[in-house]
């Protein structure tokens, strides 16, 4: 399995997947940094009120994390959509399968190989965004927010990768691309629907949205992270501990102490007002595991 994983890493490097993803990540994070600083400068002149700073940073961070989550999912799909089917079509896999390796080890090795790279990409992006955002609020609660995003951003590529690999075993490359993007879109729209439904308190829309995040938990994972980030930030604000922002940060727009609810409301759909069930992360992990297992089983029966 390790041999296969190393094979994947070498391929990713040689085919410039790693450098391309790194450049993409750097550009994305730099853009976030530039935009955030510019925004903070301009509004600080006008308003000068600490809670605005908190609000802006929270909003921008959660928004940027959203984009990062999408990007990680898309990169995952693109990188692994033909991991099995493409190599069968081109005849690369046949001599490998004839070796004394078990077929599930091939799938496992690819999962390990791509998974490690993509988790690295995902966490690098999420952590960079968090560090930059929190830095603008002064020292104090980086650690908590880093921890808030870590499980979700580690799991996102693993969940999407498992589904894409399963598709790559079962379907031709193009069909797999269509199927996985379809699933991904359902989860994406569902996630947004759930949040909007919760915001406008439409029970039906909220439930439908919530259900669809279970189809492919990638989007749900993002919302779970967003919710935790918003909670951490508003708690910090409420306790007056928003780093160097000062006690004023604890005061909301009406001059009363700010609650998590306020911040989340102010952020619109990005306030992540629809909570995920507490076991959602466990669900996502189990989902990835089961789908990976299915992919391994399917590989055992695959015609080559």
């Amino acid at each position: 399995m390790w041999v296969m994983a190393r094979f994947v890493w070498r391929e990713a490097w040689r085919r410039r997947l790693v450098p391309a993803a790194l450049i993409l990540a750097v550009v994305y994070v730099s853009l976030f940094r530039l935009g955030l600083d510019h925004l903070l400068q301009r509004t600080a002149e006008g308003l000068g009120r600490p809670f605005v700073r908190l609000y802006l940073v929270a909003f921008m961070l959660v928004f940027a994390l959203y984009g990062a989550s999408l990007m990680v999912s898309v990169v995952t799909i693109l990188a692994s959509v033909g991991a099995i089917s493409g190599e069968i079509d081109s005849g690369i896999l046949q001599p490998i399968v004839a070796r004394p390796v078990r077929r599930w080890e091939i799938v496992g090795g690819k999962y390990l190989g791509y998974g490690a790279l993509l988790v690295l990409l995902s966490l690098t992006m999420a952590w960079s965004l968090v560090v930059i955002g929190m830095d603008r609020l002064g020292p104090g609660f980086w650690g908590q927010v880093l921890w808030d995003v870590t499980p979700s951003f580690a799991l996102t590529p693993l969940v999407v990768l498992a589904v894409t690999l399963l598709g790559s075993v079962l379907l031709p490359t193009l069909g797999n691309g269509i199927a996985v993007f379809g699933l991904f879109s359902v989860a994406f729209i569902g996630g947004a629907m759930g949040q909007i439904g919760a915001m406008v308190q439409n029970r039906w829309v909220y439930q439908i949205g919530r259900l669809s995040t279970f189809v492919l938990p990638s989007d749900g994972l993002y919302w779970a992270a967003a919710r935790r980030v918003v909670e951490t930030l508003s708690e910090a604000a409420a306790s007056g501990g928003a780093g160097g922002v000062g006690p004023g940060a604890a005061l909301g727009p009406q001059g009363r102490p700010m609650s998590g609810y306020d911040l989340s409301q102010m952020m619109g759909p990005f306030g992540a007002s629809a909570p995920q069930p507490p076991w959602f992360l466990a669900y996502a992990a189990a989902f990835a595991g089961v789908v990976l297992l299915l992919a391994m089983l399917a590989m055992e029966r695959r015609r080559l």
Binding site: R10, R14, S90, G91, Q94, A98
Partner: peptide, 14 residues
């Protein structure tokens, strides 16, 4: 066992 398949494409990045 050794095997040379009919389609003998190899990973061209190696």
């Amino acid at each position: 066992m050794g095997f040379l398949p009919e389609l003998f494409r190899q990973p061209d990045w190696l």
